[in-house]
Nucleic acid binder design. Structure first.
Length: 104
DNA sequence: AGGGTGACGTTCA
DNA sequence: TTGAACGCCACCC
């Protein structure tokens, strides 16, 4: 058996995202490095878009490096992310997360 | 095999 | 501070 398994980058990413402690947030770039993808931050969003059904991945804890939500303001998905973040105790103002929750 | 794309990031104006 | 343009690089068709 050779091909043991492709760890599947997507799954690796989900694992990293799931490792984000509640009440905190991480940027795509941070997750990318933690997952070993390096600068491939864009892939993070793509992987999150491929999340399977019934997942327990806190995708909403992943935001841009500047603290902004990765979705256009006004979108349903945007409101959902903000709502979940606030539920975790994260301050979200004008689609931006307080810098405090950044340095974790 | 090639080209376009993107839940990003950084720099410039 | 905000907005626009460019750069990166793997994935999909």
């Amino acid at each position: 058996m050779s091909d043991e398994q492709e760890p599947g980058k997507d799954q690796k990413i989900w694992q990293v995202v799931a490792a984000i402690p509640p009440g905190k947030v991480a940027s795509y770039g941070q997750v990318a490095e933690m997952a070993g993808l390096g600068r491939q931050a864009r892939y993070i969003g793509r992987a999150l878009g491929k999340l399977p059904r019934g997942h327990e991945i806190p995708w909403y804890r992943v935001i841009r490096s500047n603290g902004q939500i990765a979705f256009p303001q006004g979108s349903d998905i945007y409101h959902e992310q903000v709502s979940r973040l606030q539920a975790e105790g994260v301050e979200v103002v004008n689609g931006r997360v307080a810098m405090k929750q950044f340095r974790w």
